[in-house]
Nucleic acid binder design. Sequence first.
DNA 1: GAAGGTTTGTTGAAACTTCAATCACTATGT
DNA 2: ACATAGTGATTGAAGTTTCAACAAACCTTC
Lengths: 153, 153
Amino acid sequence: MTEPRWLDAAQQRDWRAYIEGSVRLADLLDRDLKSKHGLSTAEYEILVRLSEAPGRRLRMAELADFASQSRSRLSHTVARLECKGLVARGTCGADKRGVNAELTDEGFTLLEKAARDHVTTVREFFIDVIDPDDLKAIGRAFGAVTEQVAKVR
Amino acid sequence: MTEPRWLDAAQQRDWRAYIEGSVRLADLLDRDLKSKHGLSTAEYEILVRLSEAPGRRLRMAELADFASQSRSRLSHTVARLECKGLVARGTCGADKRGVNAELTDEGFTLLEKAARDHVTTVREFFIDVIDPDDLKAIGRAFGAVTEQVAKVR
DNA sequence: GAAGGTTTGTTGAAACTTCAATCACTATGT
DNA sequence: ACATAGTGATTGAAGTTTCAACAAACCTTC
Protein backbone atom coordinates (compact mmCIF):
# COMPACT_ATOMS: atom_id res chain seq x y z
CA MET A 1 0.00 0.00 0.00
CA THR A 2 1.63 3.22 -1.14
CA GLU A 3 1.65 6.05 1.38
CA PRO A 4 -0.54 8.95 0.18
CA ARG A 5 0.68 12.55 0.26
CA TRP A 6 -0.82 13.69 3.54
CA LEU A 7 -1.62 17.36 4.08
CA ASP A 8 0.90 19.36 6.09
CA ALA A 9 -0.22 21.08 9.29
CA ALA A 10 -1.09 24.39 7.62
CA GLN A 11 -2.99 22.78 4.78
CA GLN A 12 -4.94 20.68 7.21
CA ARG A 13 -5.82 23.74 9.29
CA ASP A 14 -7.05 25.61 6.25
CA TRP A 15 -8.98 22.67 4.83
CA ARG A 16 -10.71 22.06 8.13
CA ALA A 17 -11.49 25.71 8.63
CA TYR A 18 -13.15 25.62 5.24
CA ILE A 19 -15.18 22.49 6.01
CA GLU A 20 -16.42 23.80 9.31
CA GLY A 21 -17.15 27.31 8.08
CA SER A 22 -18.92 26.20 4.94
CA VAL A 23 -21.15 23.72 6.75
CA ARG A 24 -22.09 26.24 9.42
CA LEU A 25 -22.73 28.98 6.89
CA ALA A 26 -24.88 26.75 4.67
CA ASP A 27 -26.83 25.71 7.73
CA LEU A 28 -27.43 29.26 8.80
CA LEU A 29 -28.47 30.45 5.35
CA ASP A 30 -30.85 27.54 5.02
CA ARG A 31 -32.55 28.26 8.32
CA ASP A 32 -32.69 31.94 7.51
CA LEU A 33 -34.42 31.43 4.16
CA LYS A 34 -36.73 28.81 5.56
CA SER A 35 -37.85 30.79 8.57
CA LYS A 36 -38.35 34.07 6.72
CA HIS A 37 -39.74 32.88 3.40
CA GLY A 38 -40.43 29.15 3.64
CA LEU A 39 -37.78 28.33 1.06
CA SER A 40 -34.88 25.91 1.23
CA THR A 41 -31.56 26.96 -0.28
CA ALA A 42 -32.13 24.53 -3.16
CA GLU A 43 -35.52 26.05 -3.90
CA TYR A 44 -34.15 29.56 -3.68
CA GLU A 45 -31.36 28.70 -6.09
CA ILE A 46 -33.91 27.42 -8.59
CA LEU A 47 -35.98 30.58 -8.40
CA VAL A 48 -32.87 32.73 -8.87
CA ARG A 49 -31.77 30.88 -11.99
CA LEU A 50 -35.23 31.06 -13.49
CA SER A 51 -35.52 34.77 -12.75
CA GLU A 52 -32.34 35.42 -14.72
CA ALA A 53 -33.22 33.30 -17.72
CA PRO A 54 -34.77 34.90 -20.82
CA GLY A 55 -38.54 34.72 -20.42
CA ARG A 56 -37.94 33.53 -16.86
CA ARG A 57 -38.07 29.99 -18.15
CA LEU A 58 -35.56 27.16 -18.58
CA ARG A 59 -35.61 23.55 -19.63
CA MET A 60 -35.32 21.17 -16.73
CA ALA A 61 -31.91 19.85 -17.77
CA GLU A 62 -30.42 23.33 -18.06
CA LEU A 63 -31.94 24.36 -14.78
CA ALA A 64 -30.52 21.28 -13.11
CA ASP A 65 -27.11 22.19 -14.41
CA PHE A 66 -27.27 25.85 -13.36
CA ALA A 67 -28.52 24.94 -9.92
CA SER A 68 -25.99 22.12 -9.44
CA GLN A 69 -28.72 19.58 -8.75
CA SER A 70 -29.44 16.12 -10.08
CA ARG A 71 -32.35 15.87 -12.49
CA SER A 72 -34.26 13.63 -10.18
CA ARG A 73 -33.88 16.03 -7.32
CA LEU A 74 -34.93 18.91 -9.54
CA SER A 75 -38.06 17.04 -10.65
CA HIS A 76 -39.16 16.56 -7.07
CA THR A 77 -38.28 20.08 -6.01
CA VAL A 78 -39.99 21.73 -8.96
CA ALA A 79 -43.07 19.62 -8.26
CA ARG A 80 -43.15 21.11 -4.78
CA LEU A 81 -42.59 24.63 -6.08
CA GLU A 82 -45.41 24.09 -8.54
CA CYS A 83 -47.71 23.09 -5.71
CA LYS A 84 -46.84 26.32 -3.95
CA GLY A 85 -47.63 28.22 -7.14
CA LEU A 86 -44.14 29.65 -7.52
CA VAL A 87 -43.22 27.81 -10.71
CA ALA A 88 -45.26 26.49 -13.65
CA ARG A 89 -44.33 23.65 -15.99
CA GLY A 90 -45.11 23.47 -19.70
CA THR A 91 -43.84 21.62 -22.73
CA CYS A 92 -41.31 23.37 -24.90
CA GLY A 93 -42.09 23.53 -28.59
CA ALA A 94 -39.34 21.81 -30.54
CA ASP A 95 -38.40 18.76 -28.53
CA LYS A 96 -41.49 17.04 -27.24
CA ARG A 97 -39.54 15.35 -24.48
CA GLY A 98 -38.47 18.68 -23.06
CA VAL A 99 -40.21 20.45 -20.20
CA ASN A 100 -39.91 24.13 -19.41
CA ALA A 101 -40.04 25.42 -15.88
CA GLU A 102 -41.23 29.01 -15.69
CA LEU A 103 -41.23 31.43 -12.78
CA THR A 104 -44.74 32.65 -12.00
CA ASP A 105 -45.49 36.24 -11.01
CA GLU A 106 -46.12 35.01 -7.52
CA GLY A 107 -42.74 33.27 -7.56
CA PHE A 108 -41.04 36.42 -8.77
CA THR A 109 -42.65 38.53 -6.07
CA LEU A 110 -41.58 36.10 -3.37
CA LEU A 111 -38.08 35.92 -4.78
CA GLU A 112 -37.71 39.71 -4.73
CA LYS A 113 -38.49 39.75 -1.04
CA ALA A 114 -36.35 36.72 -0.27
CA ALA A 115 -33.36 38.08 -2.19
CA ARG A 116 -33.31 41.25 -0.13
CA ASP A 117 -33.12 39.38 3.13
CA HIS A 118 -30.75 36.84 1.69
CA VAL A 119 -28.16 39.33 0.52
CA THR A 120 -28.25 41.00 3.90
CA THR A 121 -27.51 37.70 5.63
CA VAL A 122 -24.81 36.76 3.12
CA ARG A 123 -23.14 40.09 3.82
CA GLU A 124 -23.42 39.77 7.56
CA PHE A 125 -21.92 36.29 7.76
CA PHE A 126 -19.73 36.09 4.69
CA ILE A 127 -18.89 39.12 2.55
CA ASP A 128 -18.46 41.66 5.33
CA VAL A 129 -16.35 39.44 7.59
CA ILE A 130 -13.89 38.60 4.82
CA ASP A 131 -11.00 40.74 3.61
CA PRO A 132 -11.73 41.84 0.01
CA ASP A 133 -8.52 40.27 -1.26
CA ASP A 134 -9.40 37.01 0.43
CA LEU A 135 -12.78 37.08 -1.26
CA LYS A 136 -11.06 37.38 -4.63
CA ALA A 137 -8.90 34.42 -3.67
CA ILE A 138 -12.03 32.42 -2.88
CA GLY A 139 -13.48 33.29 -6.26
CA ARG A 140 -10.33 32.14 -8.03
CA ALA A 141 -9.96 28.99 -5.98
CA PHE A 142 -13.50 27.72 -6.32
CA GLY A 143 -13.55 28.56 -9.98
CA ALA A 144 -10.59 26.22 -10.31
CA VAL A 145 -12.33 23.58 -8.20
CA THR A 146 -15.43 23.71 -10.39
CA GLU A 147 -13.30 23.31 -13.49
CA GLN A 148 -11.46 20.36 -12.05
CA VAL A 149 -14.66 18.64 -10.95
CA ALA A 150 -16.15 19.25 -14.39
CA LYS A 151 -13.28 17.37 -16.01
CA VAL A 152 -14.26 14.02 -14.56
CA ARG A 153 -18.02 14.40 -14.82
CA MET B 1 -38.94 49.08 2.25
CA THR B 2 -35.28 50.07 2.61
CA GLU B 3 -33.02 49.04 -0.25
CA PRO B 4 -30.43 46.48 0.89
CA ARG B 5 -26.75 46.80 0.05
CA TRP B 6 -26.56 44.58 -3.01
CA LEU B 7 -23.30 42.89 -3.96
CA ASP B 8 -21.25 44.55 -6.67
CA ALA B 9 -20.43 42.59 -9.83
CA ALA B 10 -17.12 41.25 -8.55
CA GLN B 11 -18.50 40.22 -5.18
CA GLN B 12 -21.37 38.47 -6.86
CA ARG B 13 -19.01 36.61 -9.18
CA ASP B 14 -16.87 35.45 -6.28
CA TRP B 15 -19.82 34.49 -4.12
CA ARG B 16 -21.37 32.47 -6.89
CA ALA B 17 -18.11 30.79 -7.78
CA TYR B 18 -17.90 29.71 -4.16
CA ILE B 19 -21.46 28.38 -4.06
CA GLU B 20 -21.08 26.39 -7.23
CA GLY B 21 -17.63 25.06 -6.43
CA SER B 22 -18.46 24.09 -2.87
CA VAL B 23 -21.64 22.24 -3.86
CA ARG B 24 -19.91 20.36 -6.65
CA LEU B 25 -16.94 19.49 -4.47
CA ALA B 26 -19.10 18.28 -1.59
CA ASP B 27 -21.06 16.17 -4.03
CA LEU B 28 -17.97 14.62 -5.48
CA LEU B 29 -16.38 13.87 -2.11
CA ASP B 30 -19.60 12.29 -0.92
CA ARG B 31 -19.87 9.99 -3.92
CA ASP B 32 -16.21 9.14 -3.64
CA LEU B 33 -16.42 8.10 0.00
CA LYS B 34 -19.67 6.26 -0.52
CA SER B 35 -18.55 4.28 -3.54
CA LYS B 36 -15.15 3.32 -2.15
CA HIS B 37 -15.96 2.75 1.51
CA GLY B 38 -19.73 2.91 1.98
CA LEU B 39 -19.50 6.03 4.13
CA SER B 40 -21.26 9.37 3.77
CA THR B 41 -19.29 12.52 4.45
CA ALA B 42 -21.21 12.99 7.69
CA GLU B 43 -20.31 9.48 8.84
CA TYR B 44 -16.70 9.95 7.85
CA GLU B 45 -16.52 13.19 9.79
CA ILE B 46 -17.80 11.42 12.89
CA LEU B 47 -15.22 8.67 12.63
CA VAL B 48 -12.43 11.23 12.18
CA ARG B 49 -13.41 13.19 15.27
CA LEU B 50 -13.66 10.05 17.35
CA SER B 51 -10.29 8.80 16.14
CA GLU B 52 -8.65 12.00 17.35
CA ALA B 53 -10.30 12.10 20.75
CA PRO B 54 -8.50 10.72 23.82
CA GLY B 55 -9.50 7.07 24.17
CA ARG B 56 -11.20 7.36 20.78
CA ARG B 57 -14.38 8.29 22.57
CA LEU B 58 -16.52 11.40 22.94
CA ARG B 59 -19.81 12.39 24.48
CA MET B 60 -22.59 12.76 21.98
CA ALA B 61 -22.94 16.50 22.53
CA GLU B 62 -19.24 17.16 22.00
CA LEU B 63 -19.18 14.96 18.96
CA ALA B 64 -22.17 16.79 17.52
CA ASP B 65 -20.35 20.05 18.01
CA PHE B 66 -17.06 18.89 16.50
CA ALA B 67 -18.82 17.37 13.52
CA SER B 68 -21.11 20.39 13.02
CA GLN B 69 -24.24 18.26 13.23
CA SER B 70 -27.47 18.57 15.15
CA ARG B 71 -27.88 16.22 18.10
CA SER B 72 -30.83 14.57 16.51
CA ARG B 73 -28.96 13.90 13.32
CA LEU B 74 -26.02 12.56 15.27
CA SER B 75 -28.27 10.18 17.20
CA HIS B 76 -29.61 8.69 13.99
CA THR B 77 -26.23 8.54 12.29
CA VAL B 78 -24.45 6.98 15.25
CA ALA B 79 -27.24 4.42 15.46
CA ARG B 80 -26.47 3.43 11.87
CA LEU B 81 -22.73 3.37 12.51
CA GLU B 82 -23.37 1.18 15.52
CA CYS B 83 -25.32 -1.26 13.33
CA LYS B 84 -22.36 -1.44 10.99
CA GLY B 85 -20.09 -2.16 13.96
CA LEU B 86 -17.94 0.93 13.47
CA VAL B 87 -18.94 2.73 16.66
CA ALA B 88 -20.08 1.53 20.09
CA ARG B 89 -22.18 3.42 22.61
CA GLY B 90 -21.84 3.30 26.38
CA THR B 91 -22.81 5.44 29.33
CA CYS B 92 -20.21 7.79 30.69
CA GLY B 93 -19.51 7.58 34.39
CA ALA B 94 -20.19 10.92 36.01
CA ASP B 95 -23.28 12.28 34.30
CA LYS B 96 -25.89 9.58 33.94
CA ARG B 97 -27.58 11.42 31.10
CA GLY B 98 -24.40 11.33 29.06
CA VAL B 99 -23.63 8.78 26.36
CA ASN B 100 -20.19 8.06 25.00
CA ALA B 101 -19.62 7.11 21.42
CA GLU B 102 -16.44 5.10 20.91
CA LEU B 103 -14.67 4.09 17.74
CA THR B 104 -14.35 0.31 17.47
CA ASP B 105 -11.22 -1.38 16.13
CA GLU B 106 -13.17 -2.22 13.03
CA GLY B 107 -14.15 1.43 12.68
CA PHE B 108 -10.55 2.52 13.08
CA THR B 109 -9.35 0.09 10.45
CA LEU B 110 -11.96 1.25 7.97
CA LEU B 111 -11.16 4.88 8.71
CA GLU B 112 -7.46 4.34 8.03
CA LYS B 113 -8.27 3.03 4.59
CA ALA B 114 -10.89 5.68 3.88
CA ALA B 115 -8.61 8.53 4.99
CA ARG B 116 -5.93 7.52 2.51
CA ASP B 117 -8.30 7.65 -0.41
CA HIS B 118 -10.01 10.75 0.90
CA VAL B 119 -6.87 12.84 1.19
CA THR B 120 -5.93 11.86 -2.33
CA THR B 121 -9.26 13.07 -3.65
CA VAL B 122 -9.14 16.25 -1.59
CA ARG B 123 -5.76 16.98 -3.07
CA GLU B 124 -6.81 16.25 -6.61
CA PHE B 125 -9.90 18.45 -6.56
CA PHE B 126 -9.06 21.07 -3.96
CA ILE B 127 -5.58 21.50 -2.50
CA ASP B 128 -3.59 20.91 -5.64
CA VAL B 129 -5.71 23.11 -7.91
CA ILE B 130 -5.50 26.10 -5.55
CA ASP B 131 -2.63 28.56 -5.24
CA PRO B 132 -1.05 28.13 -1.78
CA ASP B 133 -1.68 31.78 -0.90
CA ASP B 134 -5.30 31.44 -1.91
CA LEU B 135 -5.59 28.41 0.36
CA LYS B 136 -4.33 30.50 3.26
CA ALA B 137 -6.92 33.13 2.38
CA ILE B 138 -9.62 30.45 2.49
CA GLY B 139 -8.45 29.36 5.91
CA ARG B 140 -8.59 32.93 7.22
CA ALA B 141 -11.92 33.70 5.62
CA PHE B 142 -13.79 30.63 6.80
CA GLY B 143 -12.30 30.96 10.25
CA ALA B 144 -13.90 34.39 10.37
CA VAL B 145 -17.19 33.01 9.04
CA THR B 146 -17.27 30.33 11.74
CA GLU B 147 -16.64 32.95 14.40
CA GLN B 148 -19.39 35.17 13.10
CA VAL B 149 -21.89 32.32 12.89
CA ALA B 150 -20.96 31.26 16.42
CA LYS B 151 -21.88 34.72 17.73
CA VAL B 152 -25.57 34.31 17.01
CA ARG B 153 -26.03 30.66 17.92
C1' DG C 1 -36.05 18.49 49.87
C1' DA C 2 -39.24 19.85 46.49
C1' DA C 3 -40.46 22.91 42.63
C1' DG C 4 -39.10 24.81 38.53
C1' DG C 5 -35.99 25.28 35.05
C1' DT C 6 -32.11 23.51 32.11
C1' DT C 7 -29.33 20.07 29.69
C1' DT C 8 -28.70 15.54 27.43
C1' DG C 9 -29.96 12.36 24.26
C1' DT C 10 -33.54 9.76 21.83
C1' DT C 11 -37.69 8.99 19.11
C1' DG C 12 -41.26 9.00 15.31
C1' DA C 13 -43.16 11.33 11.72
C1' DA C 14 -42.71 14.46 8.01
C1' DA C 15 -39.83 16.40 4.53
C1' DC C 16 -36.25 15.83 1.49
C1' DT C 17 -32.62 13.39 -1.41
C1' DT C 18 -30.81 9.49 -3.78
C1' DC C 19 -31.06 5.51 -6.53
C1' DA C 20 -32.78 2.48 -9.98
C1' DA C 21 -36.29 1.71 -13.10
C1' DT C 22 -39.28 3.47 -16.48
C1' DC C 23 -41.61 5.94 -20.28
C1' DA C 24 -41.69 8.87 -24.18
C1' DC C 25 -39.38 10.89 -27.66
C1' DT C 26 -35.22 11.71 -30.80
C1' DA C 27 -31.08 10.38 -33.38
C1' DT C 28 -28.35 7.04 -35.83
C1' DG C 29 -27.17 3.36 -38.81
C1' DT C 30 -28.40 -0.08 -42.16
C1' DA D 1 -38.55 2.16 -42.88
C1' DC D 2 -36.91 -0.28 -39.08
C1' DA D 3 -34.23 -1.52 -35.17
C1' DT D 4 -31.13 0.21 -31.86
C1' DA D 5 -29.19 3.27 -28.97
C1' DG D 6 -29.33 7.70 -26.63
C1' DT D 7 -31.61 11.72 -24.29
C1' DG D 8 -35.07 14.17 -21.22
C1' DA D 9 -37.78 13.89 -17.55
C1' DT D 10 -40.49 11.55 -14.11
C1' DT D 11 -41.64 8.06 -10.60
C1' DG D 12 -41.66 5.19 -6.31
C1' DA D 13 -39.07 3.22 -2.86
C1' DA D 14 -35.32 3.37 0.21
C1' DG D 15 -32.32 6.05 2.81
C1' DT D 16 -31.27 10.42 5.32
C1' DT D 17 -32.20 14.78 7.68
C1' DT D 18 -35.17 17.89 10.13
C1' DC D 19 -38.56 19.04 13.38
C1' DA D 20 -41.17 18.82 17.50
C1' DA D 21 -42.06 16.28 21.42
C1' DC D 22 -40.39 13.68 25.05
C1' DA D 23 -38.07 11.41 29.17
C1' DA D 24 -34.39 11.21 32.24
C1' DA D 25 -30.91 13.36 34.85
C1' DC D 26 -28.99 17.45 36.69
C1' DC D 27 -28.98 22.25 38.88
C1' DT D 28 -30.74 26.08 41.45
C1' DT D 29 -33.08 28.23 44.92
C1' DC D 30 -36.23 28.83 48.28
